[in-house]
Design a protein around this nucleic acid. Sequence first.
DNA 1: ATTACACCTTTACGTTACGTTAATGTCAAC
DNA 2: GTTGACATTAACGTAACGTAAAGGTGTAAT
Lengths: 254, 254
Amino acid sequence: MEYTVQKLGKMAGISTRTLRYYDEIGILKPARINSSGYRIYGQNEVDRLQQIMFYRELGLSLSDIKDIVTSPGFDKAKALREHLEKLLAERSRLDLLIKNVEKTIAATEGRVNMSDMEKFEGFKQKLIEENEEKYGEEIREKYGKEIVEKSYEHFRNMSKEDFDRMNSLASQVLETLAEAMKTGDPASPLAQKAADLHKQWITYCWGSYSKEAHAGLAQMYVDDERFTAYYDKVQEGAAKFLRDAILIYTGMNK
Amino acid sequence: MEYTVQKLGKMAGISTRTLRYYDEIGILKPARINSSGYRIYGQNEVDRLQQIMFYRELGLSLSDIKDIVTSPGFDKAKALREHLEKLLAERSRLDLLIKNVEKTIAATEGRVNMSDMEKFEGFKQKLIEENEEKYGEEIREKYGKEIVEKSYEHFRNMSKEDFDRMNSLASQVLETLAEAMKTGDPASPLAQKAADLHKQWITYCWGSYSKEAHAGLAQMYVDDERFTAYYDKVQEGAAKFLRDAILIYTGMNK
DNA sequence: ATTACACCTTTACGTTACGTTAATGTCAAC
DNA sequence: GTTGACATTAACGTAACGTAAAGGTGTAAT
C-alpha cells in the first residue's frame, strides 16, 4: 500500500505540514518521490511514523526521536530515563511555580479585599459624616473628623491578624443576626448579642467607638439601600432588625 | 538616580539584551534617550522592572505581564488565577507523561531482559550443541537440532505470563538450592527438589525436555565459568552441587 | 477540450524570550 | 590619538509546526 501526504496524515491524525516537516528534518523521508514530485510513503514509513508518534506522545523532542528511530542500536531505555529526569525536573519547577502563584493570589486577594474594604470604609465614613450632619453639628464637631482620621489611620496599620479577626466578627454578626431574627424581638438576648458583636466589629474597623456613630451607622443600614442589600441577604428585614437591636443596645431608641 | 542599560541590568541580574527587548515590546521603556541615543532609566523604571521580574518568576508570559504593569486598573488576581489554571493543566499533562514514560521504561527494560535472555539462551544452546558433541554424535543427531529449533521457536512465542513464571521458577531454583546446600547431600530430598524445579525451568525455557540435555547443561554449569559464577553467587560450590543433584535426578551419575 | 475542484509542491513568515554575533558609534582615560 | 569599555541597530537562531501565498497535477464532469 502506498500513501500520499494527505492519506498518511489522515491515517496518523497529523497534518500534511507535519509530514513535510518530518521529511525536512530527516526524521521520516518518503519511500520515493513520484514523477510529479509527490511524496510517496510505503509500509516501512507507516511503521516508522507510528514509532515517532509513540515517542512524541511521551513528550520526547523530535531530535531525540530522530536518534531513536534512525539508529537501530540506540539505547532507547537510556534516552527514556534521561527524558524522565527532565520531566521530573520540569514538574518540580511547576510545583514551585504553582505554590508561589497560589501564595501570591492569596496575598493579592487579601490586598484586594483590603483595598475594597478601604473603599467601603471610606464610603462609610463619608456617609457617617453626612449622617452626623443630620444628627447635628455638635456630634460631628466632637467625633467627626477625629473618628475619620483615626479610622483611616487604624485601617492602614491593621495587621493581617486584625483583619482576619475583623472578618470573623463580620460573619459572626451575620450568623447571630440570622438566629436572633427567629425570636422576632430586637430586644432579645440574641439580638443584643448581635448588636454587641457589631460594636466589636466597628471597634476593629475604626479603632474607636461611640454610641452616636454606632446608632448613626445602624440607621444608615436602613436608609441606604447598598447597606440594606448587604444585611438583607441574611433575610428580608435584617437591616431594619439590626438597626432596632443597635438602637436598643446603644440606648438611642428613646 | 539614573541608569544605563548595563547598570540597570546588573542591578536586576538580567542582560542588556533583555532590557532592549523589553523596550522593543513596550513593556519597559527608558525614562528618556540621551543625545547619543543611550537608554536612560530612572527610579520609576527600576520599580516597574522589579514588578516585571516578580511576575516573570511566577512564570507569566511577557504579554500577560505587559497587561498587568501597563494598565493600573488591571485585574491582577484574575490574571494570576488564569495563570494558575494553566500551570495546573500543564502539571496534569506532565503527570500523565511521566506515568507513561515510566510504564514504557518498565516495558522496555522487560524487553531488554527478554532480549538478554534470548541471547543467553542462544548462547546456552550453542554450548549444549558443543557439549553434546562431547557426549557423542548419536545424542546430537537425535535431539540437537530439533531441540535448538524448538527452543528458539518456543522462546519467541513465549507470553508475558510464561516469562514471569519462568523467572519465578529460576528464583525458586536458587532458593531451594541455597536450602539444599545446608544438607550437604545432592541426593537429599531438598536437592532433588531443586533439580526438579530446574527441570521445570528448562521445560519452560526450551518447550521440551531430555535427561541428556539436562545433564549436559548441569555439567556445563561446572565447566563454564560464566554459569558457575551465576550459580555460585548463592554460595561457593553451588554450581557443582546443582550438577551433582541433577546427575542423580536424571540417573546420569552412574 | 475546458473547467472545476481537490490535491500536490516550495517558499516563507509568525510563534517566545531572549542569546549571539556583526558592524558601528560614544565616552573617559592615558 | 588610541585603547577599552560602553552604547547602538540589525539580523539570525531556537522548536515544531500553523498559516498563507503562488503555482503545478489528477480526475471527474461538462
